[in-house]
Design a protein around this nucleic acid. Structure first.
Lengths: 118, 118
DNA sequence: TTGACATACCTCACAACGCGATGCATCGTG
DNA sequence: CACGATGCATCGCGTTGTGAGGTATGTCAA
């Protein structure tokens, strides 16, 4: 399992990225994340739903109910414009953090070298 | 400024990595982090010291007082064996998270190819 | 029919943690 | 002497993951 804090730091970015590929709903997102991390990230509903609601309250995503082929009701989410902007900002921040760690870890062979200044 | 959650997720790994390069003390660590992130991470003492104390209580690092050339007392920290093991674990987790995000963001070859921001 | 299990949504209570505010002390410099 | 830089530390607030709990519907085999 991943550390709690790392989960917190990646949850919104993961959700927004997944929704960017197409609308989805809670249960599916959980499984998608599990697959993406090769089973290392096991999200549970009690962390996902609050995040989803928070994103919605902040205008990052919108939701709508729609029935699945089996008849079950699902609450689908889609990214809004603000959500996409937020995602870009999160990507930027992730790269900064990754760069800082990378410069301490790797023998920075061609990878993290770029002095991305401008 | 980086998001609070991302700060939380990287603080211990950054500290352990910095200490791995040589013993250091609070004030210096804060500046080192700022430099590593090109000024994007502005840690303050009220987040660093609790983390340092936590790491010490958990047996990850040890501390000792030593006077600086100017005479001021400094509390130096050094990594313990458990701290190094913990660092390795944190590296592993970071790579998993980075891998998951990477597979959603970029073509995962070339590592984060900085696709020219148009 | 019954029971187990996957699917699908949600909330509450608790603990952990960043961080602004605050405090104390020393050193160098003008 | 005043002031900023250095150097350590704690308190209280708000945010957040998460175990535990709740509700409801679909499939499938016994």
């Amino acid at each position: 399992m991943l550390d709690k804090k790392l989960v917190a730091a990646t949850s919104e970015a993961l959700i927004l990225s997944i929704l960017q590929e197409g609308d989805s709903y809670g249960y599916e997102i959980i499984q998608r994340v599990s697959a993406l991390s090769h089973g290392e990230l096991k999200w549970n509903e009690s962390m996902l739903y609050p995040v989803l609601h928070r994103l919605e309250n902040n205008g990052m995503v919108s939701s709508y109910w729609q029935a699945s082929p089996t008849g079950r009701q699902r609450k689908y989410y889609s990214v809004d414009e603000d959500g996409l902007a937020e995602l870009e900002e999160k990507k930027r921040q992730w790269r900064i953090a990754d760069g800082a760690l990378g410069s301490l870890w790797g023998p920075n062979d061609e990878v993290h070298v770029r002095q991305a200044k401008e």
